[in-house]
Design a protein around this nucleic acid. Structure first.
Lengths: 269, 269
DNA sequence: TTGTACGCGTTATCAC
DNA sequence: GTGATAACGCGTACAA
């Protein structure tokens, strides 16, 4: 194919220098009206697309911001991602997404790629990149971490209080009179899951209710584990009247098992 | 912060020229063992990261491939995306993701960004970018479209036969003796949803079963619409014994309503 | 095998 | 206002 048009091509066609073209492109300095029009005409007819690489190389700015995401099938993370993208709509920064799929190694490579792409800023949604690594990143460019709490980078985190969430959810159920509340935990190797469980335990303690290990079933944040956990409880004939699932997906799964198995008599709703 | 190390820095530290450094970096030509080691040492200690922009600008290759995705909360699309990423693991191409969120305009901008990023190839997962536009893309670089059928670009599509899927699903239920099969449709403005519905209709016709509009409920591919659709049917007292939902999410939703509403007597499983 | 020098497409700093 | 021209960091003939 014909090689794409360069800034020189449109400079020629408009009868000006490349400097002028660059100026109308970036609006970095005033340009005579007639020349500006000529340039814009040339840009349009030649369908000129400035080479981001060359531009970034010269300016040191890429006008892009990098986003590190995780396995977006999670509704919450997806919502976060969507919000970030929406926020970027207003700006003239383009979002570049890289996915870590919850694997630290892969995440690190993804971040490295984004850095090599010279993103002007980085948004990390969830994930498990080592904190020290993020620390290094933070001192090189603007960094924002969503859904994670980094003790050494408090100002860079948009944090969800998992402990409080677990506490309030459990408390809510206790307040409605339930005394035997099941907790389907998330992946306990994940700090979020631990915190939510701690919240659950604390709520029980505050209510003066003894902790019964039989009511806590380990899951992994996915639908299946929620369903499986419920079925185990029901089959085992464990007595309970309410369930606090670690996340929406597990709640969905748990909800499913109610249809197939014998419904726990005192289960409300 | 100190500016990142350049190829010159490590050339100095290793006592060689930048050409040699480039050579060991790209393996484009043999290099003396001792020099190679010196270079590698320098790279390691200086934590050198080649500037992708400069590299691509000079070579015309970016060693990246672009991926256009849609609202990944869809399990199927997510699976596709995951597969693509996995395939790329083996290669030394890095994936750059851009999201279109099912909005043609946004998608086009996303593709444009990827093109400006000089991706060496493009994978489009679903989406609604105009076909002519993709046609232009296809003649500029390798293109692959997943989950969509472009008549003019058959060789570039990994296509799911929605009609056949709808047909077989319905046929499966009919073969098991069901005669009143509900269809919860997807978003009917979407061609996939239309095709699946056509498959449903064709299967009915082939089985000599009259089409009953009361058995078809419109949805939008999301969980809620599946649940809502089922509840409407149950409340209306419509008689049926099986359900064909347009996708997994709607089936999930439908499944949920069974727990809360009166279970349809002849509903199996 | 290795180094020199030029080019990639833009931006930015100058003089004019 | 406008146009040369030097970076930007790296790949790569070409020469040695």
């Amino acid at each position: 194919m014909k090689t794409k048009a360069t800034i020189q091509d449109i400079a020629d066609r408009a009868g000006v220098s490349i400097s002028t073209v660059s100026r109308v492109l970036r609006g970095s300095a005033p340009v005579a009206e007639n020349k500006r029009l000529a340039v814009q005409e040339a840009i349009a007819t030649l369908n000129y697309q400035p080479n981001l690489f060359a531009s970034s190389l010269a300016s040191g700015q890429s006008r892009t911001i990098g986003i590190l995401t995780q396995d977006i099938s999670s509704p919450v993370l997806d919502l976060m991602l969507r919000s970030v993208l929406q926020g970027l709509d207003q700006s003239d920064y383009a979002p570049i997404i890289a996915d870590g799929y919850w694997q630290a190694q892969r995440e690190q490579a993804a971040v490295q790629l984004l850095l090599n792409l010279q993103v002007d800023g980085l948004v990390v949604v969830g994930g498990s990149v080592p904190e020290p690594f993020l620390h290094q990143v933070a001192e090189r460019l603007p960094l924002m971490v969503i859904g994670r709490n980094l003790p050494t980078l408090p100002d860079h985190c948009l944090y969800l209080d998992n402990f409080l969430g677990g506490y309030q959810a459990t408390r809510y159920l206790l307040d409605r009179g339930h005394t035997r509340v099941v907790h389907l935990t998330g992946l306990l190797s994940h700090v979020d899951a631990q915190d939510r469980k701690q919240g659950y335990l604390q709520a029980l303690a505050d209510a003066g209710i003894a902790y019964d290990p039989a009511l806590v079933v380990q899951g992994n944040f996915l639908e299946q584990s929620g369903q499986l956990g419920m079925e185990m409880l029901l089959e085992a004939g464990v007595n309970f009247s309410a369930v606090f699932a670690a996340n929406d997906q597990m709640a969905f799964g748990a909800r499913l098992s109610i249809g197939t198995a014998v419904v726990c008599p005192r289960m409300c709703r």
